[in-house]
Computed example of a mutant assay.
Amino acid sequence: MKISYLLILLSLTLGTPSQIDVSEVRTAYIKASGDEQAVEQLNSKLISVTTTDDKVLVAYKGAVGTMMAKYAKGLKDKKSLFKEGVSLLDYAVTSDSLNVEIRCIRLSVQENAPKITGYKKNIDDDKAFILKNYNSMTDEGAKKFVKGYALRSKVFNDNERQLFQGL
C-alpha cells in the first residue's frame, strides 16, 4: 500500500510526458542556451520522456542531453551524455522526418556542436528542408520557434533570413 502511494506521489511530482507543455519546453530551450542552471532545469522537466512519447519532446530531450554534456565533469561523462542526446535526437528525426521543428532542433545542435564530435553532417540537408517546408507548418508555436532560430542562426545567410522576415 505504501509503495503504490509513493509511486503515485512520485509520478505526480516528476510529471509525465503528457503533462509537459511543448510551448514551455520551446521557451525554456531558447533560454537554456549558455545557462547551466536552465539546462539542468529543462533536463529535469524532460527526464520522464521516452522514445514512445511525442517525437518533438524526444528531440528536445536529446538536444538538452547534448547541452548537458557541456557541463559534465570528465571526458567520459561528456562523451556519454552527448552520444545519448544525439541518439534520441536522431531517433526523433528518423521517426518523424517530415517535422520541421524536429529538423530545426537537430540543426541547432549540429550548428553548435564542437567540431571534435563530428556531429555536423546534416546541417545543409536540415537547412534546405526547413527553407522548403517552413510555409507548410500549421503549429504557430513551432513556426515561431523555427523562424526565431533561423533569424539568429549563422547557418542561414541574409537572403535566406529575409524569407522568414515577411512571414
Score class of each variant (00 low, 15 high):
Met1Asn: 12
Met1Phe: 09
Lys2Arg: 10
Lys2His: 06
Ser4Gln: 15
Leu6Thr: 07
Leu6Cys: 10
Leu7Gly: 06
Leu14Tyr: 07
Leu14Arg: 05
Gly15Glu: 00
Pro17Thr: 03
Pro17Arg: 05
Val22Thr: 14
Ser23Lys: 12
Ser23Gln: 11
Val25Lys: 03
Arg26Leu: 08
Thr27Leu: 14
Thr27Ser: 15
Ile30Asp: 03
Ile30Cys: 00
Lys31Ala: 15
Ala32Pro: 01
Ser33Ile: 11
Gly34Asn: 03
Gly34Ser: 02
Asp35Cys: 04
Val39Asn: 03
Glu40Asn: 14
Glu40Ile: 14
Ser44Leu: 12
Ser44Tyr: 09
Ser44Thr: 12
Thr50Ile: 08
Thr51Gln: 12
Thr51His: 06
Thr52Phe: 06
Thr52Gly: 13
Thr52Asp: 13
Asp53Ser: 11
Asp54Gln: 10
Lys55His: 11
Lys55Thr: 11
Val56Ser: 10
Leu57Glu: 02
Leu57Val: 06
Val58Gln: 11
Val58Glu: 08
Ala59His: 08
Ala59Ile: 08
Tyr60Arg: 06
Lys61Val: 02
Lys61Phe: 03
Gly62Thr: 06
Ala63Cys: 03
Ala63Tyr: 01
Met67Thr: 06
Ala69Tyr: 01
Tyr71Asp: 09
Tyr71Lys: 10
Ala72Gln: 14
Ala72Met: 13
Lys73Ala: 12
Lys73Asp: 14
Gly74Gln: 04
Leu75Glu: 15
Lys76Phe: 13
Asp77Pro: 04
Lys79Met: 14
Ser80Thr: 15
Ser80Ala: 15
Ser80Ile: 12
Leu81Arg: 14
Leu81Ala: 11
Phe82Cys: 10
Glu84Lys: 14
Glu84His: 08
Gly85His: 05
Val86Asp: 08
Leu88Cys: 03
Leu89Thr: 03
Ser95Asn: 13
Asp96Glu: 15
Ser97Trp: 03
Ser97Met: 10
Ser97Pro: 11
Leu98Ala: 14
Val100Gly: 11
Arg103Asn: 12
Arg103Ser: 06
Cys104Ser: 14
Cys104Gly: 05
Leu107Gly: 05
Ser108Cys: 05
Gln110Ser: 07
Asn112Ser: 15
Pro114Thr: 08
Lys115Gln: 12
Ile116His: 04
Gly118His: 09
Asn122Ala: 13
Ile123Trp: 02
Asp125Gln: 14
Asp126Tyr: 01
Asp126His: 02
Lys127Ile: 00
Ile130Val: 09
Ile130Ala: 05
Leu131His: 04
Leu131Cys: 06
Lys132Gly: 04
Asn133Arg: 02
Asn135Thr: 11
Asn135Cys: 07
Thr138Leu: 05
Thr138Gln: 11
Asp139Val: 11
Glu140Met: 10
Glu140Tyr: 08
Gly141Val: 07
Ala142Cys: 04
Ala142Asp: 07
Val146Asn: 00
Val146Ser: 00
Val146Arg: 00
Val146Glu: 00
Val146Pro: 01
Arg152Gly: 09
Ser153Val: 02
Lys154Glu: 08
Phe156Arg: 04
Asn157Cys: 02
Asp158Gly: 06
Glu160His: 01
Gln162Gly: 02
Gln162Cys: 00
Leu163Lys: 15
Phe164Thr: 01
Phe164Val: 00
Gly166Ile: 12
Gly166Val: 13
Gly166Asn: 14
Leu167Asp: 13
